[in-house]
């Protein structure tokens, strides 16, 4: 059974306050899908880290949020798209404490720990797409 979709919602990430808007949109979806409060908080926190990465490292882009289902359970999927420099060394980028910027280096690795599914598609010179999913328990 293919994933069900209620039509993804897309918003730009071009400025600091867009990160706040992404958080709010993801929270709305997480509440609609009736994720537990802890799972809502984890997903919104992961989205905040990833949206900031899109802005700072990717030079801006957009986020797409949708409700999904795998046939057994509902979930929320959020993806973060940029056309920035890409990530040359994925192992390094996903390691705790590593950062190419001024951050703590917890963005990618921390976000991955907070969600159920984490997919990273990156190409040097082309950009990065990070997709995360949290399923309802």
């Amino acid at each position: 059974m293919p994933p069900r979709s209620d039509g993804p919602e897309q918003i730009p990430i071009d400025a600091d306050d867009d990160v706040v808007r992404v958080r709010q949109l993801v929270r709305t979806y997480a509440q609609q899908t009736k994720l537990s409060l802890v799972d809502q908080t984890k997903l919104v926190t992961a989205a905040s880290e990833l949206a900031r990465n899109t802005l700072i490292y990717g030079g801006g882009g957009f986020a797409r949020v949708e409700e999904v289902s795998d046939g057994r359970r509902a979930g929320v999927r959020a993806s973060f798209h940029d056309e920035g420099p890409g990530i040359p060394d994925l192992t390094l980028a996903l390691a705790d404490g590593w950062s190419s910027g001024s951050g703590l280096g917890l963005g990618l690795s921390g976000a991955r720990r907070l969600v159920d599914q984490f997919d990273l598609d990156t190409e040097v010179g082309r950009g990065t797409v990070v997709t995360v999913t949290k399923w309802k328990r």
């Binding site: 409060l37 802890v38 809502q40 908080t41 690795s109 921390g110 720990r113 907070l114």
Partner: peptide, 11 residues
């Protein structure tokens, strides 16, 4: 919920 998330995030 914030405390649980922070710990899992690694902070």
């Amino acid at each position: 919920a914030v405390a649980i998330t922070l710990v899992e995030l690694g902070l």
